[in-house]
Simulated assay, not measured.
Amino acid sequence: MSTTRRATSMTLDAALLDEARALGLNISRAAEEGIRAQVRAERSRRWKEDNAADIAAYNKWIEENGVPLARFRKF
Results as ranks from 00 to 15, higher is better:
6 R>L: 09
6 R>N: 03
6 R>D: 00
7 A>L: 13
7 A>N: 08
7 A>Q: 09
8 T>A: 11
8 T>E: 04
9 S>L: 09
9 S>N: 11
10 M>S: 00
10 M>E: 00
10 M>T: 00
10 M>A: 02
10 M>P: 00
12 L>N: 02
12 L>I: 14
13 D>K: 10
14 A>W: 02
14 A>F: 01
15 A>L: 15
15 A>S: 13
16 L>Q: 11
16 L>P: 00
16 L>R: 13
16 L>G: 07
18 D>R: 15
18 D>S: 12
19 E>V: 04
19 E>C: 01
20 A>W: 15
21 R>N: 05
21 R>P: 01
21 R>H: 04
21 R>M: 10
22 A>F: 04
23 L>Q: 12
24 G>P: 05
24 G>C: 05
24 G>E: 05
25 L>P: 00
27 I>V: 12
28 S>D: 07
28 S>P: 03
29 R>Q: 15
29 R>V: 10
29 R>F: 05
30 A>W: 10
30 A>H: 06
30 A>I: 01
30 A>P: 00
31 A>K: 01
31 A>Y: 06
31 A>L: 15
32 E>T: 08
32 E>I: 07
33 E>W: 02
33 E>T: 07
33 E>R: 14
34 G>T: 06
35 I>Q: 01
35 I>A: 12
36 R>Y: 01
36 R>K: 12
37 A>H: 06
38 Q>M: 14
38 Q>D: 09
40 R>G: 01
41 A>E: 09
42 E>D: 10
42 E>L: 15
43 R>M: 13
43 R>G: 00
44 S>F: 10
45 R>L: 11
48 K>C: 03
48 K>A: 07
51 N>H: 15
53 A>F: 09
54 D>L: 15
54 D>W: 12
55 I>A: 09
55 I>Y: 08
55 I>L: 14
56 A>D: 12
56 A>Y: 01
57 A>K: 15
57 A>S: 12
60 K>E: 12
60 K>Y: 03
60 K>H: 07
61 W>Y: 09
61 W>T: 01
62 I>N: 00
63 E>K: 14
63 E>N: 09
63 E>I: 02
64 E>Y: 01
64 E>G: 02
65 N>K: 14
66 G>R: 12
66 G>Q: 09
67 V>G: 00
68 P>W: 08
69 L>C: 11
69 L>H: 10
69 L>D: 11
70 A>T: 05
70 A>M: 11
70 A>L: 15
70 A>G: 04
71 R>D: 12
73 R>N: 11
73 R>V: 13
73 R>M: 15
74 K>T: 12
74 K>C: 03
